[in-house]
C-alpha cells in the first residue's frame, strides 16, 4: 500500500494550489472553482484518514462535504450571475461596493 503521508502531501499540495487560485485570480467564477478544488483536497484528506483508521466515518464526512459544496455552488453561482447582470463583468476589480 501507498503510505498515508503521501496522500496527505498530495492533499496539502492541492489545497495550496486552491488557495493560490482564490487569492490571485481576478475572475469570480475561477475563484469559486478554486474553492471547489480546496474542498476536494480536504475530502481526499478525510478519505485517507478513513483508510488509515480502517473505519468508514471519514468517507461519510467526505460525502457530507460534497452535499454542502453542492449547496454552496448553487448560491455562489446565483450571486455571480447577479453580479454579472449588474456590472457586466466578473472581474473582482470592478466590484468595489464592499470596500470600506
Amino acid at each position: 500500500m501507498i503510505p498515508a503521508t503521501h496522500y496527505l502531501i498530495l492533499s496539502v499540495t492541492l489545497f495550496s494550489i486552491g488557495i493560490l487560485g482564490v487569492l490571485i485570480r481576478r475572475n469570480i467564477l475561477l475563484i469559486l472553482l478554486s474553492i471547489e478544488l480546496m474542498l476536494n483536497a480536504a475530502n481526499l484528506n478525510l478519505i485517507a484518514g478513513s483508510a488509515m483508521h480502517g473505519r468508514l466515518d471519514g468517507q461519510l464526512s467526505a460525502f457530507f462535504v460534497m452535499v454542502v459544496a453542492a449547496a454552496e455552488v448553487t448560491i455562489g453561482l446565483a450571486i455571480a450571475v447577479l453580479l454579472f447582470r449588474q456590472k457586466n463583468s466578473v472581474d473582482t476589480h470592478e466590484i468595489k461596493e464592499l470596500k470600506g
Binding site: L32, N40, N43, L44, A48, S50, F63, A70
Partner: peptide, 25 residues
Amino acid sequence: FTLLGAYFVAMAHLIVYAGAVLVLF
C-alpha cells in the same frame, strides 16, 4: 478515492462534481 476503498464516494463524486456542479459552472 477508489484506490482508498471509497467506491461509493468516488462514484457520487463523479456524478455530483463532473456531472452536475462543473456543468453548471
